[in-house]
Structures are given as structure tokens and as C-alpha cells.
């Protein structure tokens, strides 16, 4: 029997804005399955985003949805979670939104280890504005603003999140739909800042400029470049050249969660 996504989608809000072949829809379905698995009460769930193609996702979902300003999702979400810690807070967004204009908010939300799940769709490009290079566009690749090849080095988002202090960091790709919801479930269940980076594809503004003749070519690339943590353990550095790791990359269950820390502040202030 087909999975019932419709009960999670707001009536009348589809079709979505995403191009044919875009992976964001795959991620959205994964998020719906994950929220269902965790039995999240949508009334008590805030889904927060910034600006960009990926950030339009919350509007389609039946929950408390907050489409904020460019890059600011984590900061708005921090306010929601602090004011109402009993709410489930999920951030979604893209690589430019989350790590360029929103980079400061991203790293500090990781540092605080505030309990939220951030699903970051990394499609290597600013799609909505027509394909300008992002902090995740591979060096040398073509974008509308790197006509001679991208001179910039990239951010490794998962490493950035680990370095910044997130306590659950996982990565998968749009070509691994079953892993998406499994990792989001683990992220939701984790008490603290959970980053799930989904390497995604943008055929319209990234793929066509970078010699991917079809969406299938892009998906094949994701399959080829992704190596699970388990498989990687048996591979040499040479074999791992040009690959990226997928699965749970990091988890720390010891670091205190921020709203719990603040609950202790309240206790102290009240003389308990």
C-alpha cells in the first residue's frame, strides 16, 4: 500500500515550486515519514526555514510553520525552542541559506546544543536566484557567477557542525531516500542539536552547467560519491578520494542540552 503522505500535506498547497528532478521533494517525503515514525504531534511541532527553494518546504506541511528571512532559521527556531521547550523544533533549508548568510546562526545553534533537528539540503548552489555559487559549490565548478570556474574552497557542512559543537551529525543523499528518514528519526530522537545534511541535486541551475546531462546522471553521481561510514572503514585513503561519508558521522550524548541548562538557571534564580 502506498504511504499516506497526504495527511501531512496542507490541502491545496501542492504542486510545490520545485523543478522536475529536484531532490527536495524526496527529502520532504523522508521528513514526513520520520515525523510519522516519531509520532510528532504537528500542533506541537514548529518547522522553521529561511529563504531559498528548500526553505519553501514548511509551507506544504501541516504544522506550525515559520518561513523566516534568509539565513535566519536557526535563530528564529532558537527563540521558539527557548520560549517553549516542550515543542519539537525542526529546521529545514539549503546550503547557501544555512552556511553563508546563516552561517553564524548555524554554528552558534550547534555550539549551544539546543534540541532541534536541522535538515540541511546541500545542492551545491543558490537555486532560487538562478544558480550562483554557494559555500558548497565544488572548487572549479561552473555557476552563473563563476563563469571561469569556482575559485572558492568549500565548506564541509558536517565537519563544520561537528566542529561547532552539534551533538548529532549525519549525512546522506537524495539518492538514498530510505536513509533520509532513518537519519532524521535518529536526529529527532537525539536530545540536542542534530544536523542531517542531505546531499541533494539541482539539475536546473547546477547540473546543466556542470555537464550532467540528466537527473539520472546526478543521482548516479550521488550514489558513486557516497560511501557509508561502515564501508569506508574498510577502504584506503586512496579509495576514498573524491568520496564523502554517509550515515551517522558523530554523536555525543554527554554534552548538556541548552534548554535543560537554562531550566537549571531558572532553578538557581528561583533559589531552589
Amino acid at each position: 500500500m502506498a504511504y499516506d503522505y497526504e495527511k501531512s500535506i496542507r490541502p491545496g498547497k501542492l504542486p510545490h515550486i520545485w523543478c522536475p528532478g529536484c531532490g527536495h521533494g524526496i527529502v520532504m517525503k523522508g521528513l514526513i515519514r520520520a515525523m510519522d515514525t516519531c509520532e510528532l504531534d504537528r500542533k506541537n511541532t514548529a518547522i522553521v526555514s529561511g529563504i531559498g527553494c528548500a526553505s519553501r518546504l514548511p509551507g506544504y506541511l501541516d504544522a506550525c510553520t515559520l518561513h523566516t528571512a534568509h539565513g535566519r532559521a536557526a535563530a528564529f527556531a532558537t527563540g521558539v525552542k527557548m520560549a517553549k521547550p516542550q515543542m519539537n523544533v525542526i529546521c529545514v533549508g539549503g546550503d547557501g541559506d544555512g552556511t553563508a548568510i546563516g552561517g553564524n546562526h548555524f554554528i552558534h545553534a550547534c555550539r549551544r546544543n539546543i534540541d532541534m533537528t536541522y535538515v540541511l539540503m546541500n545542492n551545491y548552489i543558490y537555486g532560487m536566484t538562478g544558480g550562483q555559487f554557494s559555500p558548497c559549490t565544488p572548487t572549479g565548478d561552473l555557476a552563473s557567477t563563476t563563469p571561469y570556474g569556482n575559485p572558492d574552497p568549500i565548506f564541509d557542512i558536517s565537519k563544520l557542525a561537528i566542529g561547532a559543537g552539534a551533538t548529532f551529525v549525519a549525512r546522506t543523499t537524495a539518492a538514498h531516500p530510505r536513509e533520509i528518514d532513518k537519519l532524521i528519526v535518529k536526529g529527532i530522537q537525539h536530545k540536542g542539536m542534530a544536523i542531517i545534511e542531505v546531499i541533494d541535486d539541482c539539475p536546473t541551475t547546477y547540473g546543466r552547467r556542470n555537464k550532467f546531462r540528466s537527473v539520472i546522471d546526478m543521482m548516479k553521481r550521488l550514489k558513486t560519491e557516497a560511501v557509508s561510514v561502515k564501508a569506508a572503514a574498510k577502504m584506503t585513503a586512496e579509495q576514498l578520494e573524491g568520496k564523502f561519508l554517509t550515515g551517522v558521522l558523530f554523536q555525543d550524548t554527554e554534552k548538556p542540552e541548552y534548554t535543560v541548562q537554562y531550566a537549571n538557571v531558572i532553578k538557581k534564580a528561583q533559589g531552589a
Binding site: V48, C64, L66, T68, A69, R72, A75, F76, A77, T78, G79, V80, K81, M82, A83, K84, M87, N104, H105, I107, H108, Y262, I266, Q270
Partner: peptide
């Protein structure tokens, strides 16, 4: 029982205030 948070920058501070207000 209120909450105080020092955010990472001024923009984030404003964002947190709006987020908190939306919870009532």
C-alpha cells in the same frame, strides 16, 4: 520563569524575539 538568551549577533537576537513571541 522567563527566558533570557544572549544571541550570537543583533540579527539573531531579533529573530529569537520574533520566534519566542510566536509561542505567545
Amino acid at each position: 520563569g522567563g527566558k533570557f538568551i544572549q544571541m550570537e549577533d543583533e540579527i539573531a537576537a531579533m529573530a529569537s524575539v520574533i520566534g519566542a513571541s510566536l509561542t505567545g
